[in-house]
Design a protein around this nucleic acid. Structure first.
Lengths: 150, 150
DNA sequence: GTGAATGCAAACTCTTTGCATGACT
DNA sequence: AGTCATGCAAAGAGTTTGCATTCAC
């Protein structure tokens, strides 16, 4: 729980970068800050837009390069809900994570957690013939605002 | 079980197309045939390549248009395992389906089924604030051939 | 015969890469 | 100083779209 605060995550990322011998440059830390602020499930474009608004204009190439590095260092998680562009979100060292509800109508992406789900997936992971390193669950449907019952 | 045979699925697709007022043209039925033959989790490119090999060369645009239509009619399921291109597979009217194991090393995609997983997801779907219509589970890791223990 | 479907090519979006310039340690 | 990181612009991959032609019904 204490590891999930944005500030702590940012600290964690910066020290991880340092430990891995990477520089904490302006553009790179700006991207880290943007991810911390945007939180769950953002796109490269959203990050670039936010930074442009902050007059910290960072080139798209640098955004993508930063995301690739952060994912490789496992401090950012790449999530693919299948709408053409990849989504990214902070990854916490504790391993705690969530999954996503995607609205097919408006594209809204919401997070959820479920212990039973994690337990079943964990058990399942031991049974299959793969060496499982991670998992992703996406539930699709209509969000409260788009639901026909409204 | 009887609904999962490729031939039956093909029949089902053709009658669904007809019922929905769509024509069963050569290119379109060729795409349906390719999906039936390729089975689980294929890409638009693989379908086009197979058809080219069969001298039934169908333009990429037609492959994509057929896939879009078939998905809309719910006879094809689009699966996104997040490697740049979308994957497609037959969808059976019985609702039976599977999920995927993806090898991060070689890209190999394998199917699996798990009743416990389905049960948990079903229960979960009733609790969330979305009107859930479907779900997707992807387990990532190393396949038997890429596993370090080999 | 008529409207739907096709094929090609061009357009578009997202992402990656080459290369000269600039900045962190 | 030396190297790593940046930015731009061009290249690439996957997918979509416009439009004249063709084909199923």
């Amino acid at each position: 729980m204490s590891t999930t605060a944005p500030a702590q995550w940012t600290e964690h990322v910066l020290s991880t970068l340092d430990r891995a011998g990477h520089r904490s440059t302006g553009p790179r830390t700006a991207v880290v800050g943007a991810i911390a602020d945007l939180g769950c499930s953002t796109t490269a474009r959203e990050i670039a837009d936010l930074l442009r608004g902050r007059n910290a204009g960072v080139g798209m190439a640098s955004v993508y390069r930063a995301l690739e590095l952060l994912e490789r260092l496992k401090v950012v998680r790449r999530v693919d809900v299948g709408e053409g562009s990849a989504r990214y979100e902070p990854a916490y060292p504790s391993g705690e994570h969530h999954h996503h509800l995607v609205c097919d109508a408006c594209g809204n992406v919401t997070a959820f957690e479920d212990d039973d789900l994690e337990r079943v997936i964990h058990a399942l992971s031991r049974r299959v013939d793969f060496d499982i390193a991670g998992h992703e669950v996406t539930l699709r449907g209509a969000c409260p605002l788009c639901s026909p019952s409204r």
